[in-house]
Design a protein around this nucleic acid. Sequence first.
DNA 1: CGAAAAAGCCAAAGCGCTTTGGAAGACTCT
DNA 2: AGAGTCTTCCAAAGCGCTTTGGCTTTTTCG
Lengths: 340, 340
Amino acid sequence: MNLKQLSHMLSLSQTTVSRALNGYPEVAEETRRRVMDAAKRHGYRPNPSARRLATGKSGMIGYVLPTGKAVDIDPHFVEFLSGLGDYARSHELDLVLSPADADDQETTYRRIVANRQVDAVYISSPRPADRRLALVNTLGIPFIVHGRSEGFDFDYPYLDIDNEGAFHEAARLMLQLGHKRLGLINGDDRETFAIHRERGVRRALAASGLALGERHICSVTMTEENGYRSARRLLEQDEPPTAIVCSSLIMALGVVRAVRDLGLAIPGDLSLVAHDDVFPWLRPENFPVPLSTTRSSIRLAGARVAERLAARISGLEEGARGEVWPVDLVVRGSVAGAPA
Amino acid sequence: MNLKQLSHMLSLSQTTVSRALNGYPEVAEETRRRVMDAAKRHGYRPNPSARRLATGKSGMIGYVLPTGKAVDIDPHFVEFLSGLGDYARSHELDLVLSPADADDQETTYRRIVANRQVDAVYISSPRPADRRLALVNTLGIPFIVHGRSEGFDFDYPYLDIDNEGAFHEAARLMLQLGHKRLGLINGDDRETFAIHRERGVRRALAASGLALGERHICSVTMTEENGYRSARRLLEQDEPPTAIVCSSLIMALGVVRAVRDLGLAIPGDLSLVAHDDVFPWLRPENFPVPLSTTRSSIRLAGARVAERLAARISGLEEGARGEVWPVDLVVRGSVAGAPA
DNA sequence: CGAAAAAGCCAAAGCGCTTTGGAAGACTCT
DNA sequence: AGAGTCTTCCAAAGCGCTTTGGCTTTTTCG
């Protein structure tokens, strides 16, 4: 059932039927009703390919997926996706993932924009002066960044959590408990979120006249194994930290294992806080010692990004609005006063 | 730069240029070269929307993503996606995720097929007599199932691992080590993979004249917490199992925690084997006691599914070929002889 | 050498929608 | 009543590609 058939059986022109369906004003109310009614009754749905060709709009949002033999997709992605999908579903938005060589995403961005394959894109895990950001900005496709970049002379729309504030609070808590030597097990410090977190910790320390030495920072991809290695590196030096702030629950697993291997105890010998993106399958309260966390649901962020993308596509949102969500600090059993 | 312009500057008809580019035979070799050359030089790329409208082919593969407030996307998905994307990239295939109400995916399948939004789809986590499978089968869109269903009177193309064989081997190993009481911590037993795994364990036990009682089976969604609860349930009964086979590494984390909470030891009091889908961020060799696993890379499966989908789209693969991958049994420190 | 077959190219008709530029009729206003 | 203004609808022109059917020109072969 296509427009031609439908308009023919209504004895109307395609023009009128099309306008009636798309809510244009120049069609009589009664006619519109007739059309809408017939469309529903016959289950007419405009062919998206045709509509796309005519309008250039696709009704889809895009994401360029970096891939490669050595590239692992972040497990956070799936949670973000849950939220995104949840919103997108209720608005009949589809998401197209365009896999790209991790080292050459530009080609892919250019392609999907030139081809008008999607109406908007989102960018995640941005770095300072991220080239993708500059690119989509000049390409002129609506977009939203999940996270933040730095060092641009233009503003851009983003959704981020207050990473600096969160880690500032976490570190401050440790300091208040009397800890003097803090360790930071961070994610890849080429990404802005990690930079912000480190900044937060440094700021808290500075306020107490302390500093964060190079040997008290680890910056690694967030795997259990790296959590373990980092913890050992931190804890096996002279004057090891008595408190650690860690960028992910998965790494925290490794930290806990290392602590145990070293014959230490949490929170007796080491206080631990980790960032929790709220995975359904791994919960901080279920750690051997319930884990204190800075918590922010990445899933909600996904939903919000979808919502804002939809708003941008339909012109409801404009400009470079940045949105920063506060982060909860949830204190559980894994923190205590500094050992004597 | 579109076809019209390109053909005009070559003084050829659109027909010829189109044919030259798409490898049709009725064009002279020299002409084809000229065309290809000019196309490359001017960076001509056919507009996919137009091509779609004309051919009905979209160059994308689809996946219907079940969503909902209470629906969690499986973390395995992201690994599968890595593989899929890796292959898709090299073939300029995009993946479109169509979010659907988890309780009504049929509408979405019908939509993407009717709209010809994608050339093929894949289905994951199938259940016995899975309705999605029957649906896409009748809708006539090329598809591949990742996993298997059961109870249909038609065959279908799939890629699955030998879940039954894997868990049969795992259980047999336990039996050979003298264990008499086995526990199974399985995934959701409405899904075929879980059924197959249970079947494998039962078969191994039966061969030794043993059976798997209801109280020795847990069937739960695969979270750390459920792993913990299941392990406690199994281990706190009279005559608890001395060996457990577990369906995922994530649950195994919970099992390990439970064992520790109960003051037991692995492998002294309990032998443990879990299935490993090969996540980059959680590795069995890094468990407190290196974990024995049945191992199969879900990422490779993703790549293979993409490959086969591409083959189906281009007509290279036909029929209902099923492909079952063997599973490695990797023995590490977490298994030992049954306690006296 | 002439007829038949093959090779090489093209004009034009779709694919199914949106949108432009009117046109006809109804209504308002002087 | 006639001019001007809305209102409501329509024919037709795209959007950029593929594909059908046909038309020349060249090659093949008895």
